[in-house]
Design a protein around this nucleic acid. Structure first.
Lengths: 191, 191
DNA sequence: GTCTATATGGAGATAGAC
DNA sequence: GTCTATCTCCATATAGAC
């Protein structure tokens, strides 16, 4: 698995993938060194704060990606229905149908949670609020929109857990189909 | 946090709690030693296979508890509807309304997954099959029962992730209410 | 900026006295 | 069975030459 890293910004996605595969504690600096092609000297030059800083910046990068690609369209897009559909599509692609773990969800269950609790909370809180707003714009009342959004996000996270546990991407695909259906059922049809 | 450990079987639940709180890698032997009150000598006397054996036995204990308290009643109980309700109640109590992590779900997202993949898969597979059987006995057809069971289990797991991420047990409580409603809606009412 | 060498600590695990 | 002492290894992190 070669690399060729030129700029600092190129390193972050590689770090993200390493943390996803090995977890925070499992991602040793020597592993990071070999996967990025950077010696410890370079690593600490880029990230004086060490591994904790690396993880922080990875979380920021992930959060930024979701903000631009998913959250913002949900809140500000012209067509909330289209934004919801696009969210489902983006999420399925991003998580590779369940083959790829949600790093932030994994951190939430890990003992590193305390170290990154603000980033973890914000990621999910903003997702939930953004999705809720889109649902309100579709016609749901605020409370019900909040409930549906919460259920959708937690279903995605649970689907990642279960599809990985069973080593079966079909679990994730089915869950995403249910999520999409629940999100787009429209007001008046639900419970 | 004192201990007083007399028998080997008393150690397992303590180990389970430590793994839940600190994760596999985070649960160092010195921490385990201080929390159980056992020296390394005693620890290795009980578990010659070291930490990996400790975790294996913890997983077995958890699986056994669920088998007796949850899975078996779902499959063999006189009243499948009552068994489903009891499952929801047991799960909420067991996970302390989301304050307590599902160790097996956490392992599924961790890099230790490969080491315990069989135990992880079995735990969820048996849960899913048992719940499916109860749903079939309630009157659902097999395919739909499988779908509902899958969705319920993954919702519980996702609720644990999200309630921990947001540090809000209400998330878990609401999710369990939705799960229970979805499970007991009965055939003919669903989509 | 990147390297090699190294400091320092704690991990998992073992030996052997008691 | 439980203890202390110890082994080995690898973790994060640093220093300083280039």
């Amino acid at each position: 698995m070669p690399k060729i890293i030129a700029e600092r910004s190129d390193v972050i996605p590689v770090l993200a993938e390493i943390f996803r595969e090995y977890g925070y504690e499992g991602a040793s600096l020597s592993l990071i060194g070999s996967r990025t092609g950077l010696g410890k000297g370079s690593l600490y030059h880029f990230f004086p704060g060490g591994k904790e800083q690396m993880a922080s910046e990875v979380l920021r990068e992930i959060d930024g990606w979701f903000e631009d690609a998913v959250y913002k369209p949900l809140r500000d897009g012209d067509d909330p229905r289209a934004a919801i559909l696009e969210m489902c599509r983006s999420v399925a692609t991003y998580f590779r149908s369940g083959k790829r773990v949600c790093l932030i969800g994994a951190f939430a269950l890990d003992n590193v949670r305390d170290r990154f609790s603000d980033a973890i909370r914000d990621y999910f809180a903003v997702w939930q609020r953004s999705l809720q707003q889109a649902l309100v714009r579709i016609g749901h009342d605020a409370d019900r929109a909040s409930d549906i959004a919460e259920d959708a996000i937690l279903s995605i996270q649970g689907a990642l857990v279960l599809s990985r546990a069973l080593d079966d991407t079909a679990v994730f695909e089915r869950a995403m189909a249910r999520v999409e259906a629940g999100l787009l059922a429209g007001p008046g049809q639900g419970a």
